[in-house]
Design a protein around this nucleic acid. Sequence first.
DNA 1: TTATTATTTGAACGATTGTGCAAATGTAAT
DNA 2: ATTACATTTGCACAATCGTTCAAATAATAA
Lengths: 119, 119
Amino acid sequence: MMETDEVCGITAIDRKKVEHVEQNLPESNRIEKMAGFFQAFSDPTRLRIVLSLELEELCVCDIATIAGVSVSAVSHQLRYLRNMNVVKKRKQGKMVYYTLKDEHIREVIRTVFEHIREG
Amino acid sequence: MMETDEVCGITAIDRKKVEHVEQNLPESNRIEKMAGFFQAFSDPTRLRIVLSLELEELCVCDIATIAGVSVSAVSHQLRYLRNMNVVKKRKQGKMVYYTLKDEHIREVIRTVFEHIREG
DNA sequence: TTATTATTTGAACGATTGTGCAAATGTAAT
DNA sequence: ATTACATTTGCACAATCGTTCAAATAATAA
């Protein structure tokens, strides 16, 4: 017989390991926040927008051209990215120009991108 | 009048910028792959699984306990993560133990995690 | 063999997501 | 004022997602 135990109706095979993990895992809040961060880059259109803004400050219309979707769709995604603190906007007359919010975002993107290349 | 131009029915405000971005953007294939990579970590349950496997090699049942979802749900997510080359399995008798696939994944996770902490 | 346990798989379900359309808002030009 | 144009917003809809349940595999124990 293995070291088996009943916990909440689920069979925990190795209680020590489970406890070790549960004690060292970030709290749920943080994990959800982190997952949300990843989610911001998990859609091809959104990622293309972000990568574009790493190269140039762009207006909504130009982003739509580059992303190959409607201006409306881009606007929706930009709002999403703004809420996630990934991009910021600069208004100039009728136009609204978007850029990445800070260097921090740039570095994360670059890091992951490098690792993708290797993998 | 601004430097405006009709392209595919979409008004391109600044053709130079658009061309510069389009020429320096990764190709669609790569962007989609990269987005897929991010997507692997964009769900709280999946991210919790990955973070757990960074700490310990775990069987499916223990992962379910830690993640707080059914064994079935975990198995589905593990298959997803296996297809994405994030985790690998080791079979031992009835049990199947999972670990992160390589150090590469570990480093990406750590990097992003650090940046999240700061931001 | 039969029973038990761990995992996987497929189907079904509600929830979320990304999109385009149409209307609304904001801003500048005529 | 009216027109023109960039952007935003609300709605609807199809597609995808994450989950559980139940059945199927796989492997050990009795």
